[in-house]
Each structure stands twice: as C-alpha cells, then as structure tokens.
Design a protein around this nucleic acid. Structure first.
Lengths: 188, 188
DNA sequence: GATATTTTTTGACTTTAGTCAAAACTTTTC
DNA sequence: GAAAAGTTTTGACTAAAGTCAAAAAATATC
C-alpha cells in the first residue's frame, strides 16, 4: 500500500516522527470504492477519517424535499463530516463518491490513540480542523459576497474537471442556484 | 467582579473543578467598553477571548469597497475571531461593540496555561470550537437554502432587539442583500 | 432647539434568477 | 443498437433583488 501521498499531505502540515508514521501506517485501511457509493449516510455517526488517494467525492444534505451540495473534494484531500466526526453525533450530511475512488482511512478510536501516544500529533489535528473551519467560513463568504457566475468561476478554478464528475444539478445546488440558471450561465 | 454568568456558560458545557475555576478567575479581566469600540482590527492577531456579560457586538470585513457583517453576538456569548485566535495569524475581520458593553476576557497565553494545567479543560475548548464551527456551517446553509426574507426572520428570532442595536445597512450586509431591499422587506 | 449629519424609505427602472414545460441530448440497459 | 432513463438546454413568462436618485425621518451636534 502506497502511503506517500497521505504522508506528504500530513508532513506538509508538520513533520511527523518515523515512530508515529509507522504506528499510523499500521492503522490505515485502503479500499477501492466504486462510483456512487455512500461513505456516510445522514443520521449515522461518522467514524472514519478518509484520505482521497484517487477520485472525487461530494457531500450533500436535504432541506425539505430539496437536496443541497455542501462541498466537493478531490485527490489529496482529507474528507470527514467535521461536525459528526468530532462531536460523535449523527451527521446531517451524506458523503458519496462521484467516481471510482481509492481511499485510505483510519477510525476515530485510532486517531484518539495517536493523539494520546504522540501529543505533538494534536497540532496536526488542530491545523486540519482549522483548515476545515476556514473552508466553511470561505463558503459563507462566497455566498455572501459573490454573484452566481463568480461562484461558478471560482469552483471551476478549484476543480477544473468538475463538469466531468458532477452533474449540472449537483453543481447548481452547491452554488445555491437552479440548474436552468447554471445552464444559461454556462451558455455564455 | 461577578463571574457567575461566565461560569454558568462554561459549566453548562462541562462542569469545571473549583481548582480550575479559581485559577481561571485570577486571569479574568473585566472592562466597561463604550459603544463603537473596535475590539479587534483587521490585520491584527486576536489575542484575547471575550465573554459578553452585557452588550451587543458585531464582526465585519471588507471585500473591495464593500463592508460585510459576519455575525452579531449578544449577552452570554463568547466572542473571538476563531481563525485568528487559534492560528495566531492576522485577522481578516474586525469586531466592534454596537452598544456599551461589559466584557470579561483572558489572553491566549492564559488559555494555553489552563489547557496545560487542567487537561480536562481541553474538552471545553474543543466543544466551544465545535459550536463555532457549527455556527459557521449554519451561516453557509442559511445563505444557500433560505430567501432573504427567511434569513431576516431567522435573525430576528435569534436577536429580537437587533433593530435597536444595529443599523439597517449593517443588518443588510449580514443577510447578503442591499439595504433598500431590506427596507422593502420590512415594510411588508 | 435649529442645523447638520446619518439613516431609512420610496419611486422608477434594470438586471438577475426562478418557474414550468417541452425539446434535445447523453448514457445506460437489455 | 433501440428503448428507456437520466441530464441538459431552450423558451416564454414571473418574481426577486439591484441600481440610482431623491425625499423623509431620525439622531447627533453646537
């Protein structure tokens, strides 16, 4: 199992001791997950933290009859439903794969053990949480300050291949607009 | 100095030992702050975490020439610029009082000392961060799923007195609409 | 308490996005 | 590879929000 992309991402935050890396490596499970697999279902507690070695994923939730997309994530990113994973409470959001994925993950319990055994690792955890927090703030700021067209351009800049992985409807619910509107924006 | 509202809020999250409470109490500084005082200026690092014993406060940021409100907070709430306080980096947002306030606060260094001396206190810290995270997610969800009118009603439900403390313009930038639009919404 | 300043409202018009329905593509399945 | 299912586009119309400007109301200042 090739762990170098994962450790690259983590060492980029803070260099991990070889000791910690080998303990970590013992925990990691790698799996091939086909397109359209639900990784987390609303109502369940998120119990694993995933690293996307290859693939593309989205999180979504329902409000009444309508579905909304919270975020998209691709290769090299760490995915969790932050709220559920940390608070150990049922998730309001679903996570699904949008293409065949190679995922590496450890469980919540294993993560706690790493925190306890290697206190310095808490810094890495804290920084990942911070990065997630910033993402969430950015999402609110984008919705507050940008027009639909600007938000679409920003998403395209971040994930240029998104049109191949997600449907128009999924992208529209992320942007907070109707799919007909997105279709017209794209036609220009 | 009456610390019971503050300890009420904290004990509500997790009961604190009397030991911790008395150490905490030694650190707390109480101040009377007049209306329109800037508690944190964009570009500065947030170095204190505040509890609003009395008063009303808002956070805002600039994007180009335009000002946007991130949040409002009132009595009994804990205020920080999460990103800046935890990452120790310059804040992009400003925090100002909207009326005369009584604030109680401790510094980042004092908070770290409490974490180190009373490890259980980390749980309280973690839960406060989680609550902030949820607020940020909710803000994005509200902007994504609600109409301007619904967002206004929700804000009014949370802070019924807001019209007395904040100007129409400030409320409008929180909702992500123009103040003329908010004026018309209100006229109905 | 009159004047200046700031804040809010109103009016006429434009732009942006939503709605509903049908047509045109694409992709999947047998 | 034809039919079915899913997805995207287009059209005509409606609703919501923005723009610019001016008037009205509220608040602060001397």
């Amino acid at each position: 199992m090739d762990l170098s992309p994962l450790f690259n991402t983590l060492n980029n935050i803070q260099i991990l001791s070889t000791d910690l890396q080998s303990r970590f490596a013992e925990f990691v499970v790698e799996e091939q997950v086909p397109k359209k697999t639900i990784l987390l279902k609303a109502g369940m507690v998120a119990h694993r933290i995933y690293f996307i070695k290859k693939g593309f994923v989205r999180a979504f939730y329902y409000k009444g009859d309508n579905q909304f997309t919270s975020w998209f994530m691709g290769q090299g990113e760490i995915i969790i439903s932050v709220y559920s994973f940390f608070s150990r409470k049922p998730s309001f959001e679903n996570i699904e794969t949008l293409e065949d994925c190679t995922l590496q993950s450890i469980s919540w319990e294993q993560l706690q053990e790493l925190y306890a055994t290697y206190p310095k690792f808490n810094i890495t955890g804290r920084i990942i949480t911070e990065q997630y927090y910033i993402r969430s703030e950015e999402r609110a700021i984008n919705l507050q300050t940008l027009t639909a067209t600007q938000r679409y351009e920003k998403l395209l800049a971040e994930y240029p291949q998104i049109a191949q992985m997600a449907t128009l409807g999924q992208i529209a619910t992320y942007l907070g607009i109707k799919q007909e509107t997105l279709s017209r924006i794209r036609a220009r």
